[in-house]
Design a binder for these strands. Structure first.
Length: 570
RNA sequence: CGGGGCGUAGCGUAGCUUGGUAGCGCGCUUGCUUGGGGUGCAAGAGGUCGUGAGUUCAAAUCUCACCGCCCCGACCA
C-alpha cells in the first residue's frame, strides 16, 4: 500500500473527549473515528489490525476443535423469554420492532440461539462434544459507553459455546477454551492473566476472566505473587481471621450518641469504639424486598457477592426513607438487634461469626447499643462471605499478603452447566437410553476491546508500539525524497515490491513531506519496522532499519529485504 | 438514572464574568522556500458560536427548555 492511496488521518492533538492513552492514540493514529457515543467507524488501518486479531482467534479456535458458525444479530424475544433472560438481561437488550409491529432483540450474546440450534440438531451422545463459535458484531445498550472501544454499544465479540454429555467432559472443553484464550492473547502480544470470576447474569458455576494489567482498567483484581492466586475483587476472598471473641460481655447497654451517623464518628472521642468492634448494618432492596446486611465496621460490602450469594437479580442500597420504613431509624443508627420485622432477612458476613463485645445502631436515632454478641443478640438468617478484600490481607491459599491492581477484562470463560439446555430443551439421548440435557460452557473474547487493550499496554510518548502479529502494516518504508525515478524512491519501490512478494505487509510512505513529518507519523501509528532511505546513507550504499522499540541500525541496501525477513520471523 | 463538567472551522482552543466587528495555533488550498525528527514566508478557503424559545435596540456572551458529548457510580467482552 502506498500511503497517499490509503486514508490515514493522523492528528497532532488528541480530541478532547478522549481520556485514556489508548483511546487518544487510536484516534490520533487514524485507526478509528467516533460516529456517536459508544459507536465507532474503523478506518483502513484500524480494520487491518482488527482483522489480524480475528485471524489469530480463528486459527486458535479451529485448532481447539471449535466450529465456526454465523448466528443472526436479529433475535426473536421468545427464546429470551424461555431462558428467563428477557428479564435478567433486559436492560442491555436493544429492542426494535419491524414494520408489522413484531418485536426483535439485537444480539448482545448468543446462548439462546446456539442452544436452540443444539436443541434441534443434536439428538445423540454420538454427536457430542461440540463447540461452536462466531466472531460478530454484538449490541449492548450499555448504561455508560466509555473509553472508546473499551465499553461500546456496538462491538465485535468472539463467542463460543460448548456442549458435552457429562460434567467431566464439559470441564475438559472448558480447559481447552481456557488454553486457547491464553494462546490467543499471547499471540496478540498481550500479557494476560486469568483470574477467578463471578458468573453474573450469564449464570453457571465456574468462571475465569482474562485480564490485561492496566491502570485504566475498569476491574480490580486481587492476586498473590507467592502462589499465583488471582481473582476479580468481586469474587476474591482472603484468609483474614474472624473477629476475635472476648470474655462474655455484660448485657446489652443502650447509650446516647447524638449526631453520630458514621463509623468514623463513633470511633472518635468521646465514644472510642474501634471500627473493628462495630457492626455496620446496611439496608438493601433486593428484588423489591428489604434485606439487612451486617458487615464489620471496617469492612466494605461487596455487592456482587451479595447478589451471587442471595440469588438476587437486582439489588440497591435502600434510601433513607426506606430504611426508616423498615427499621424505624435513619442510616447512622441502624441495627439488627431489635425491631427487625419478621419478614426481613438478615445476612451477616462470616467475619462477624462469633463476635461479641460489639457496638451497633439501636434503631433509634441518636442511640447505639454496646456489649452486643452477634450470635446471642441478633437473629441472623444466613451467614455468607460478603466483604470486599483489601490489599495486604493474607492469601486464602498460602497466607502471603494479597496485592490489588486494576486490569482490563478481554475474555471470559464460563462453565454454564445445564441452565440453558434445560430451559431450551437442548437434550440428547445417552448411551444408556436416557434423555439428558447437554452440559454447556461459553467463552467470550471482546475483539475490539482486545485491540484497544493492546494499544493501552503497548505505547510510548511518540505513539503506539504494535506487536508484530497485529500491526496494521509490519513495515513502513520511508524514502526521504519521493521524486519518481530518484535513487531513494527507486530503491524504496524495489524493496516494497520484494517484501510484498514475500508476504510481508508493507506500506510505502510516498508523501512529499519533510522527513520529520513522516518519522513522527510512522512512530505515532507504531509500525514495528521502518526502513528509511535517504541520500546520505544511500551514498554509502546503506539504508536504515529502525524497529519501533529498538535502536536504529544501518544496513547494506541489498541486505534490507533479508534483514526484514529475519526480524519478522518469516 | 443519580452526581459533576463541557458544546465556538477537520483537531486543539480564546472570547462569555461586565451583551455591540468571532480571534489564535495546527491542519487544508496556492506560490515561493526548505529538505535526515512536525521548515520558513506570503496569499487564501473554511463558522447559522449544538438546537429552539425568551430578554434586549442588539445575544457566542444573559434566562429557560431540549439535544449531544465527557468524567464518577450501577452494567460488562
Amino acid at each position: 500500500m502506498k500511503w497517499t492511496q490509503s486514508l490515514i488521518p493522523t492528528l497532532r492533538e488528541a480530541p478532547a473527549d478522549a481520556e485514556i492513552p489508548s483511546h487518544q492514540l487510536l484516534l490520533r493514529a487514524g485507526l478509528i473515528r467516533k460516529l456517536a457515543g459508544g459507536v465507532y467507524t474503523f478506518l483502513p488501518l484500524g480494520l487491518r489490525s482488527l482483522r489480524k486479531i480475528e485471524r489469530i482467534i480463528r486459527e486458535e479456535m479451529d485448532r481447539a476443535g471449535a466450529l465456526e458458525v454465523a448466528m443472526p444479530a436479529l433475535q426473536p424475544p421468545e427464546i429470551w423469554e424461555a431462558s428467563g433472560r428477557a428479564q435478567t438481561a433486559g436492560d442491555v437488550l436493544f429492542k426494535l420492532k419491524d414494520s408489522s409491529g413484531r418485536q426483535w432483540f439485537l444480539s448482545p450474546t448468543a446462548e439462546e440461539v446456539i442452544t436452540t440450534l443444539a436443541a434441534n440438531e443434536i439428538n445423540s451422545y454420538r454427536q457430542l462434544p461440540k463447540n461452536f463459535y462466531q466472531i460478530s458484531v454484538k449490541f449492548r445498550d450499555e448504561i455508560r459507553p466509555r473509553f472508546g472501544l473499551m465499553r461500546a454499544k456496538e462491538f465485535i465479540m468472539k463467542d463460543a459455546y460448548s456442549f458435552d454429555t457429562t460434567d467431566e467432559s464439559a470441564m475438559a472443553s472448558y480447559q481447552k477454551m481456557f488454553d486457547a484464550h491464553k494462546r490467543i492473547f499471547a499471540r496478540c502480544g498481550l500479557q494476560s492473566f486469568p483470574v477467578e470470576a463471578d458468573t453474573g447474569v450469564i449464570g453457571g458455576s465456574h468462571s475465569h476472566e482474562f485480564m490485561i494489567p492496566a491502570a485504566t482498567g475498569e476491574n480490580e483484581v486481587a492476586y498473590c505473587e507467592a502462589c499465583g492466586y488471582a481473582a476479580n475483587i468481586e469474587k476474591a476472598t482472603s484468609g483474614i481471621p474472624k473477629t476475635a471473641a472476648r470474655e462474655i460481655g455484660a448485657a446489652i447497654e443502650k447509650f446516647p450518641t447524638p449526631g453520630v451517623v458514621t463509623i468514623e464518628a463513633l470511633a472518635k472521642e468521646p465514644y472510642k469504639v474501634a471500627a473493628n468492634r462495630q457492626i455496620k448494618t446496611l439496608v438493601y432492596i433486593a428484588d423489591s424486598k428489604a434485606i439487612l446486611i451486617l458487615v464489620r465496621g471496617d469492612d466494605q460490602l461487596n455487592e456482587t457477592k451479595l447478589m451471587a450469594r442471595t440469588g438476587a437479580v437486582a439489588a440497591r442500597p435502600a434510601t433513607a426513607d426506606e430504611c426508616f420504613a423498615t427499621l424505624g431509624a435513619k442510616p447512622g443508627s441502624l441495627g439488627a438487634v431489635a425491631n427487625v420485622p419478621a419478614d426481613v432477612k438478615v445476612f451477616a458476613d462470616e467475619r462477624l461469626r462469633g463476635a461479641n463485645d460489639m457496638t451497633t445502631g439501636a434503631n433509634e436515632d441518636g442511640f447505639h447499643l454496646k456489649n452486643v454478641s452477634i450470635e446471642r443478640d441478633i437473629k441472623v438468617t444466613q451467614w455468607f462471605d460478603l466483604r470486599t478484600v483489601s490489599a495486604g490481607e493474607p492469601c486464602v491459599k498460602c497466607a502471603k499478603p494479597l496485592k490489588i491492581r486494576r486490569a482490563i477484562e478481554v475474555g471470559h470463560v464460563f462453565k454454564l452447566g445445564t441452565k440453558y439446555s434445560e430451559k431450551l430443551n437442548a437434550t440428547f439421548l445417552d448411551a444408556d437410553g436416557a434423555r439428558k440435557p447437554s452440559v454447556m460452557g461459553c467463552y467470550g473474547i471482546g475483539v475490539t476491546r482486545t485491540l484497544q487493550a493492546i494499544v493501552e499496554q503497548s505505547n510510548d510518548k511518540d505513539g503506539i508500539i504494535w506487536p508484530l502479529a497485529v500491526a496494521p502494516y509490519t513495515v513502513c518504508i520511508t524514502p526521504l525524497g519521493v521524486a519518481p525515478g530518484s535513487p531513494a524512491m527507486t530503491l524504496a519501490e524495489k524493496i516494497y515490491t520484494e517484501l510484498t512478494a514475500r508476504g510481508v505487509d508493507v506500506i510505502l510512505d510516498d508523501r512529499d513531506d519533510r522527513p520529520g513529518v513522516k518519522f513522527k507519523d510512522a512512530d505515532l501509528v507504531g509500525f514495528p519496522l521502518r526502513i528509511s532511505i535517504g541520500e546520505k546513507s544511500l551514498a554509502k550504499g546503506e539504508v536504515e532499519l529502525k524497529p519501533r522499540n529498538a535502536p536504529l541500525q544501518a544496513i547494506k541496501a541489498e541486505d534490507a529485504v533479508e534483514a526484514v525477513m529475519k526480524l519478522v520471523g518469516a
